[in-house]
């Protein structure tokens, strides 16, 4: 455990000196938090308009919410998916730098020469990437909840904005997405020499989430608690496979002798 904490300590000491990662860690969550709050604030007090423009399935989900409140709920729900992306973007950036970065700074050999096991090393690096990502997701949601509580007058809308679906998305799906991103970053980093390449390839994982985002806007899919649990279940299976593949891809000897 001590070695895992040492790796986390080392990773964070380096992360907090890397401006690019810091910007990703702080600016993106702030942006994702500010946008829905600005939207909620701007729409408050506006006239209802024609709610029939929204996907019919969503109108059903609005339930007792009418007019502007239904619009506010609809728009806020689009950002739910962006909140889920945060735990993917941040760990992917950190993991890509922390693993390939060891190679570019030629620190990997002395590190592997210590009595640390591969599991300890990967756990340390994985947790060092996962914790800030999940913390950023949860922190952003906490800020959003606080902002919504201040900005929204309607108790019915506030209750819908902070209902269980958000907690499933941020608390369960987000960390599972992050774990998938880290596993992919580890796999990619055992094959490439450049942290940016590892980061970019890992970001491909965003595509399914973006697909979900646009599908919801288009009314093809309605994100609800049932869909999120199904997504979480699928992600557990995907994560088990990716963690296993990531650990297998991290071959000490191959990395030492083939990374040039």
């Amino acid at each position: 455990m001590n070695k895992i904490l040492t790796i986390i300590d080392k990773e964070w000491a380096e992360i907090f000196k890397n401006r690019l990662i810091l910007y990703t860690m702080f600016l993106m969550p702030l942006l994702f938090t500010a946008l829905p709050l600005v939207m909620l604030g701007a729409m408050g007090g506006q006239s209802a308009g024609d709610v029939t423009d929204m996907p019919p399935q969503f109108l059903q989900l609005c339930g007792e919410l009418q007019g502007t409140e239904c619009y506010q709920l609809f728009m806020s729900n689009q950002f739910l998916l962006l909140f889920m992306m945060l735990p993917l973007v941040i760990p992917a950036t950190i993991a890509a730098y922390s693993i390939v970065g060891e190679k570019t700074t030629r620190c990997l050999e002395p590190l592997l020469a210590t009595p640390i096991s591969t599991v300890e090393l990967l756990l340390g690096k994985g947790l060092a990437a996962l914790i800030p990502g999940v913390a950023a997701g949860w922190g952003s949601f906490a800020l959003f909840a606080l902002g919504a509580w201040i900005l929204v007058d309607s108790p019915a809308l506030l209750a819908r904005l902070l209902d269980g679906m958000w907690f499933i998305a941020i608390g369960v799906v987000g960390p599972l997405v992050a774990l998938a991103g880290i596993s992919v970053a580890i796999m990619v980093s055992s094959r490439v020499n450049d942290p940016r390449t590892a980061e970019q390839i890992t970001m491909v994982l965003i595509i399914p989430l973006l697909g979900l985002f646009f599908a919801q806007i288009a009314g093809v899919v309605m994100v609800n608690a049932g869909l999120l649990w199904a997504l979480a279940g699928a992600l557990v299976l995907v994560d088990v496979g990716l963690v296993w593949l990531g650990a297998r891809a991290f071959q000490r000897e191959t990395i030492l002798t083939k990374w040039k």
Binding site: K10, A13, N18, R106, C107, L108, E109
Partner: peptide, 16 residues
């Protein structure tokens, strides 16, 4: 645990 190694390049964490 029982050996020390100085690798070909020092490989230190430059930012720390």
């Amino acid at each position: 645990r029982s050996v020390g190694i100085l690798t070909e390049t020092p490989g230190m964490y430059d930012q720390l």
